[in-house]
Design a binder for these strands. Structure first.
Length: 123
RNA sequence: UGUGCAAGCCGUCUUAUCGCCCCGAUAACAAUCGGGGAGGAAAGUCCGGGCAACAUAGAGUACCGCACUUCCUAACAGGAAGGCUUCGAUCCUGAUCCCGAUCCCGAUAGUUAUCGGGAUCGGGGUCGGAAUCGGAGACAGAUAGUGCCACAGAAAACAAACUACCCCUCCCGAUGUAUCGGGAGGGGAAAAGGUGAAAAGGUGAGGUAAGAGCUCACCGCCCCAAUGGUAACUGCGGGGGCAUGGUAAACCUUGCGGGUUGAAAGACCAAAUAUGUAGUGAGGGGCUUCUCGUUCCACUUGAGCUACGGGUAGGUCGCUUGAUCCCGAUAGCGAUGUCGGGACUAGAUAAAUGAUAAGACCCCGACUAGUCGGGGACAGAACCCGGCUUAUAGGCUUGCAUUUUUU
RNA sequence: UGCCCGAUGGUGUAACUGGCAACACGUCUGGUUUUGGUCCAGAAGAGUCUAGGUUCGAGCCCUAGUCGGGCAA
């Protein structure tokens, strides 16, 4: 075990890095998510990821928390897909205005991870 | 047994697998084991405090808030008890007016009838009063002053004369020669009319030229005030014919309270660079509307301000033991206080408290008598407390009212 | 986290000390024109974000809520 963990070091927390990601990073769109990514220049070779749900679409904090938790869970269980690629900074933005259930989110997130792997090769 | 209202409480649960945050131990960021991990509103940010910085937070002014009384409390615009006003229900009762019946008295005409007066009973209208129960109230002052009260109406606030009423004088007309009608002028009078949200005490009687608290009865109002009560208040009794429209969620007055800011407060450690360049030039800062006071920095070796440019944006503390929670006793009508025993019950920081699967429980729908399908309210801590307000499926308890059935 | 504004016809704005909610553009109808535009004449379209309260009377004053926008760091 230990493959499906999701520790603090795997999350994107630094304000500076977030600003850099949104200013200079590339992006693509797969239905529920808009995905930003940028190579991680730090020494520790880990992917760092953040999940975001806009307040504009979901007024209630309970709903935003629920979606972020589902996204985080889906990433945790499927992140082995990109384990061997170059370390990246990744941001997931949830765009629709309705709440999707866990299975739909997981399916789409798998597709997005595969896309990230392809981008890695093209770089 | 059902329904409604009020108050209080609960507000999904279990198992498996994979995870997240904090604490403790082995021992050191790893790994393993053990323990803990959202709410009654965590929400809105509407009040009040603690805590911190600014001076040990000072004086005046401005501004803001509160407003029946007493008590509770750290404090409050919160709560408890009480007062007053007001609304509803039940019950009792007074004054006055109208109608009907019976009886009595008087007058008129043929026993009977008509008219007038009085008494009793019944019904209805208007205006009140007392008691009980329940609800509501931003409930200081409108006799400190200023402002405003559209339209309508004669008049809207030290009252006022449009119509109608009454008196006096003059003129004209008619005749029955002292009356009637019309006009003009001078007065009286707020009773009637209509307007309006509101018309200057109400009803009845007397009185008068007509009228009027002008006088009287009842009710209301104002002033003094015994008694009771800590107080708000109560109001025995006495006096005044009545002077007092509404609006303070208009300005304002009175009393009380408030210094400002807000954990991104603030303290410390680490990292990083440039007391850089140009302009301005004597006062500027101490987070406040102004003044005073006080204090710090600076006064050409140049504080501060403006523009351009450069660096950092990590960590620790604050950070959860507190006006804390639970149980019992006790004081008090109660809010609440006191005493004794026990418990430790989230502490994140781009922000943990979860996901999936199965089952139980509850609700809705369908077929129909146990299956299938759908759903499980409002809502997520961010320095911490006390309240208030707002959202909330469903369930439980207590009290009150009421429906049906049985005895 | 703290604080401050605003909400009025379809759209953009007015409404003075509380007293019949106004204007422009747009819409519709008719006229002018061969037709359309321009122009002229006329009409409809709100009860002021919601719910209470104060007042005789509320767009305006007060309280609570909903939505939208802005500021500080």
């Amino acid at each position: 075990m230990g493959l499906n963990t999701f520790k603090k070091s795997e999350r994107l927390c630094s304000k500076k890095l977030i600003k850099e990601l949104f200013d200079k990073g590339s992006s693509f769109y797969i239905y529920p998510f808009k995905v930003f990514y940028n190579p991680n220049k730090r020494l520790d070779e880990l992917h760092q990821v953040l999940f975001s749900v806009p307040k504009r679409n979901f007024k209630k904090a309970v709903d935003r928390n629920l979606i972020k938790r589902r996204m985080r869970e889906a990433y945790r269980l499927n992140k082995q897909t990109i384990n061997n690629s170059k370390p990246k900074l990744i941001a997931y933005i949830y765009t629709p205005k309705e709440i999707l259930d866990y299975h739909q989110i997981e399916k789409k997130l798998k597709i997005s991870l595969e896309r990230l792997l392809e981008k890695d090769i093209s770089i």
